[in-house]
């Protein structure tokens, strides 16, 4: 079977900053191959107000220890409850879901852009792309320095740049105001982005203008996560497609942005 539902054991839950948590989960079975951009749908038990599962991008996969890592940003009641998961408790996951980012070629010069909770799949891609570090630039945007997720040093995977809206870390402003965009954007072969909708639209617009290959990872509201409810649709050149099964990663040329 291609997909599974299993109870995972919480082996670590640690606050990364005021609103983000890193949760590491032990799989009861050997993990299947999982790619950056894919996600899991997490069961959150169980108040009457959190009825549906919550989708989370996968941040890391450790096949040796059979664990998955998720970055959980508190956005509402479901993510709040999940952020309180105790070590030793179990959490139901439906996995692996969706289609991830395309794999860049070794010679490609790539720009990886993450904003807010969108940094999780972007950093997973940075870590696993077979592109050598000298061809990789990572651009991370946040509201302020305190919102950045300082999990580990990503400089080993590529040149790392920051923007913050208040200027407390890196360049002041949005990711698209970073000099990488203003001055060097045409030097990239491929751009990969995940973050708030306005950020991805701004990135997509600039990529489109310059004719640069660009993939974005969407996070439309979904009920099931595996293509049966038809709630998370995105209008595309091929009609309404499910973000959960046809995405969440889309080439910007297929979107009606």
């Amino acid at each position: 079977m291609k997909k599974a539902v299993n109870d995972f054991l919480v082996i670590e839950n640690r606050a990364l900053n005021a609103t983000n948590y890193l949760i590491r989960l032990l799989s009861p079975e050997p993990l299947p191959a999982i790619y950056p951009g894919q996600f899991v749908n997490v069961g959150i038990n169980d108040s009457s107000e959190v009825f549906l599962r919550r989708p989370f991008s996968i941040f890391e996969v450790d096949y040796e220890n059979n664990t998955l890592g998720l970055v959980v940003k508190i956005l509402g009641k479901g993510s709040k409850k999940l952020s309180e998961a105790a070590t030793g408790s179990s959490i139901s996951l439906i996995y692996p879901l969706g289609k991830g980012f395309s794999q860049p070629a070794r010679a490609d010069k790539i720009l990886l852009i993450g904003g807010g909770s969108g940094v999780a799949p972007i950093l997973f891609l940075a870590k696993t792309a077979n592109t050598p570090a000298e061809n990789v630039n990572i651009l991370i945007g946040a509201k302020s320095a305190g919102d950045h997720i300082g999990i580990e040093d990503y400089r080993q995977y590529g040149a790392t740049h920051f923007t913050t809206e208040d200027g407390s870390l890196g360049v002041k402003g949005f990711v698209t105001q970073h000099p990488l965009f203003a001055e060097e954007i045409t030097g990239f072969d491929k751009i990969y982005a995940c973050g708030p909708d306005p950020m991805m639209r701004a990135v997509a617009k600039m990529a489109q203008e310059k004719g640069i290959f660009c993939e974005v990872s969407l996070e439309n509201l979904m009920a099931c996560g595996f293509g049966v409810c038809l709630c998370c649709i995105e209008p595309t050149v091929k009609g309404n497609l499910c973000v959960c099964t046809d995405g969440p990663v889309f080439n910007i040329n297929s979107l009606k942005w």
Partner: peptide, 22 residues
């Protein structure tokens, strides 16, 4: 094509959908 997004809202112990027979 069905209805426009958003088509789903979580409600206490349930959900609303407005897929519209896509």
């Amino acid at each position: 094509a069905g209805n426009d997004y958003p088509r789903m809202a979580e409600t206490p112990s349930g959900m609303l959908n407005a897929v519209g027979l896509q």
